[in-house]
């Protein structure tokens, strides 16, 4: 069963009263509104929090507040930027195996706009079944960027878009002839935030960058130089 990213929501709160739970709830509400869905339709909520209100996790409180009463939920730890890509793999596999079909994945943490104001922020993605698309490649390890790209040379396609956590050097010139196809917002929000990728996805959706069948190569580097990459067919 193929899968697709239906909508992306993003919220930030720079007030001193901001909580991860409330910010994430608003990101989910924004995501649901954009996707024309309601919270009762969610059957799995996966939350990743670089920041947490509660030491042992926030996901059940988030689920309760967003009124996702028909959902299962869990939280992921040790996420960093690499872990973020693992949620794409997880969501796709759940949909493909038909265990869940309407999955919301949320990411929470801090962003730092232009190195001036620090805000709590959260993004939410709604993933669901589709006629085509979804995960077509994933890779994890400790690779330099050039090695990260090397196995992809054997793939029977060339990615149309590249989304990276931070500014990788050198850019993969083999694929991307022009820099317009390398999407990122690391100059807009902080280098440290794993939400760079989801924020970039949301911006690209708003600008209608992606066409059905496009291949998105997404790369991230996380703690201890672990790297991960996925190719997602739109």
């Amino acid at each position: 069963m193929p899968s697709k990213i239906l909508s992306v929501g993003f919220e930030e709160d720079s007030s001193s009263e901001a909580t991860m739970t409330e910010t994430t709830v608003r990101a989910i509400e924004s995501c649901l509104e954009k996707g024309g869905k309601n919270s009762k339709e969610i059957d799995l909520l996966i939350h990743m929090g670089a920041k947490s209100d509660h030491v042992l996790g926030d996901v059940t409180q988030i689920q309760d507040k967003v009124k996702a009463t028909n959902a299962a939920s869990f939280q992921l730890k040790d996420i960093d930027k690499v872990g973020l890509l693992s949620t794409f793999v997880q969501a796709h596999s759940y949909i493909e195996s038909k265990q869940h079909c309407n999955i919301v994945v949320t990411y929470g943490g801090e962003i730092n706009r232009s190195n001036e104001s620090v805000s709590l922020a959260a993004s939410a993605l709604f993933l669901t079944k589709s006629e085509r698309g979804g995960l077509v490649f994933h890779r994890y390890g400790k690779h330099s960027l050039s090695k990260e790209f090397s196995p992809l040379e054997n793939l029977p396609f060339t990615p149309n878009w590249i989304i990276t956590f931070c500014q990788p050097k050198p850019l993969p010139q083999k694929w991307i002839a022009d820099k317009e196809h390398h999407l990122n917002d690391f100059y807009e929000i902080s280098f440290k935030s794993p939400m760079q990728i989801t924020y970039t996805l949301m911006k690209a959706l708003e600008k209608k960058h992606f066409t059905r069948g496009d291949k998105l190569f997404i790369w991230a580097e996380g703690s201890k130089k672990h790297t991960a990459s996925i190719v997602w067919e739109w």
Binding site: H47, Q75, H92, S97
Partner: peptide
Amino acid sequence: AFAHEIYDVACAGAIIAFQQAAAFLSSGT
């Protein structure tokens, strides 16, 4: 190996991990 840590599920965690393993294996991931 790729890896992730499931959190905030306490005693129910093992079965949630079994379900995930089943999803990954049956999808060929």
